[in-house]
């Protein structure tokens, strides 16, 4: 299948998700259960995307584990996104250079 079709579908779905409520929604969702699912979903999605894929993200398990631990610690202290991401990459790189 052509990559253009994938990209068109991807972009179309993403745009509609953003656009429909923004342009049309006027009422609040009433179901507390649905609201709760929507509240937890983003964090659950990010966790599932990160684990275990992050351990394969550097092509080397050692640097990936070090990078992950550093990212979790830096994130725990609520540093900005950019700092967390760079700390993960830098610590992984240092690990690869040393070992």
């Amino acid at each position: 299948m052509s990559i253009i079709i994938y990209i068109a579908v991807m972009a179309g779905v993403t745009y509609l998700i953003r656009m429909i409520p923004f342009a049309a929604f006027r009422k609040q969702i009433k179901s507390r259960f649905i609201k709760s699912i929507l509240y937890y979903l983003p964090y659950a999605v990010l966790a599932a995307m990160t684990v275990p894929a992050i351990f394969y993200s550097t092509g080397n398990l050692k640097s990936a584990v070090v990078g992950t631990v550093v990212a979790v610690v830096v994130a725990f202290f609520e540093k900005p996104l950019l700092i967390v991401a760079l700390a993960a990459a830098a610590s992984g790189l240092i690990t690869d250079l040393i070992i």
Partner: peptide
């Protein structure tokens, strides 16, 4: 690892 680091930061 950059993007995953950003996910962790969220």
């Amino acid at each position: 690892i950059l993007l995953y680091g950003m996910f962790i930061a969220i």
